[in-house]
Design a protein around this nucleic acid. Structure first.
Lengths: 231, 231
DNA sequence: CGAAGAGTTGATCCAAGTCAAACGTTGTGG
DNA sequence: CCACAACGTTTGACTTGGATCAACTCTTCG
């Protein structure tokens, strides 16, 4: 398990010298908050974290779901974070003080390059989501997100059953990630369920037919899912 | 002018050793194409570039407008780009072969860290756009984008007149960046125009009242615009 | 001058939002 | 262990913001 991208292989030993500890969070706790200057980088080791932005009037946009191996809280400059992060499940995260990382990166350029790559990958995922929200229909968005989470979760968590994953999201979470209301999200899920493409209940997603889910997501045949790479 | 973030100050001399030349593009030319493995990083020196993603059926999502100082084409791994880039105006871009950059970054960790920071900033901007497209109304989105471009262009280009910038975008570009149709984009622009907040014609944007534009964009008083920082 | 592209406007439609009411599930405390 | 509360899901009826369709006009620009 736990094949975190910053924590794996040769980096692992190095990382051990950087971390000041592990933070354990119960579900629904804040890891970082928007507007606050975050002194640490967190590497998710276990569990689900969601990154989101809150508007003054309460509208919420979920920006990303961070899974084991993903980095949260890096901002390269002294600027405060523009987003918040909170745990959706019990979460274990590795805590790396920014200053300490900086020093290590000076000694070991590979580390900084690794971080660049992770940042670029996060950016690419954000772009993919932007396209989804901007240009896909509600049904396509839901299908696309489920497909993404299905594959990502399977590469990051121990697989219990081939066609199923634990999906610790409410329908509101899904809607907030896709720019939809919970009500409409529910209807789109029903459509996928009634088409026999997925099963979703008790926080478990079963993808009965990945191909049909992909085609519901609006692409002919896997034109390369960027997030399929295990990192 | 030309205060490119990777090209400025101490880095400038270093960069000169990395670049293999400058590419000059006329408007409407491709810098990079999605699906293609891009061997170079480009640093925009002058002009406007837009990054976009194209769906099989022709739907387009504009992901970002790159201005002088912005980096295009970096992907930290061997993966092909997920987006395309094309020039909106005449563009000058500095060409840096990826391999060469990699070697230099190994010698100079500061360079790799700088890149991490730029990547993180791009990601943060993508997140901000995601929130716009996912959670703002059409009018708010248009107002928000114009405000962003107004401030960014002013920090990146010589200011000709305090309240105006050259905005080389069609209304379709604006719509494609915001997940709107050209027709509806036009109506929202009319609304802002008729409210006396902006003037927009002949590729020139004049912001008559920045405060009202900000409030049309849907935030009380500047809760910190992430892209205001000159980098 | 003519053609192609970009902007403008009106009429109509529909995907998604809103409102409202049940119903299920979980968890907690008496 | 049950009851109730809080939260999440589901469904129906109705509304609406933005899309679509279809002219028509205004700019470029060759």
């Amino acid at each position: 398990m736990r094949e975190a991208s910053l924590c794996r292989g040769a980096d692992l030993a190095l990382l051990e010298t950087l971390r000041v500890g592990e933070r354990i969070l119960s579900p629904g706790m804040d890891l970082a908050f928007q507007g606050v200057n975050c002194a640490n980088i967190y590497v998710v080791l276990d569990g689900w974290v969601c990154l989101y932005e809150l508007m003054e009037d309460g509208r919420r946009q979920i920006l990303q779901f961070a899974l084991p191996g993903d980095v949260v809280g890096f901002r390269g400059d002294g600027e405060p974070l523009t987003y918040s992060a909170q745990s959706l499940t019990a979460v274990a995260a590795c805590v790396i003080p920014w200053g300490r990382f900086l020093k290590a990166a000076h000694r070991n350029p590979e580390l900084a390059l690794r971080l660049s790559g992770l940042m670029a990958r996060d950016g690419a995922m954000a772009y993919v989501h932007l396209t989804s929200v901007g240009r896909r229909t509600a049904l396509e968005r839901v299908a696309y997100l489920l497909l993404e989470l299905f594959y990502r979760a399977r590469t990051r968590f121990p697989v219990t059953r081939g066609d199923s994953i634990a999906l610790p999201l409410t329908q509101s979470h899904i809607g907030d990630a896709l720019g939809l209301t919970p009500v409409h999200t529910n209807r789109m899920l029903r459509e996928l369920r009634e088409a026999g493409i997925i099963e979703l209940s008790q926080r478990t997603l079963r993808v009965i037919n990945p191909d049909r889910l992909a085609s519901a997501a609006g692409f002919e045949q896997d034109a390369g899912l960027p997030w399929l790479r295990p990192v």
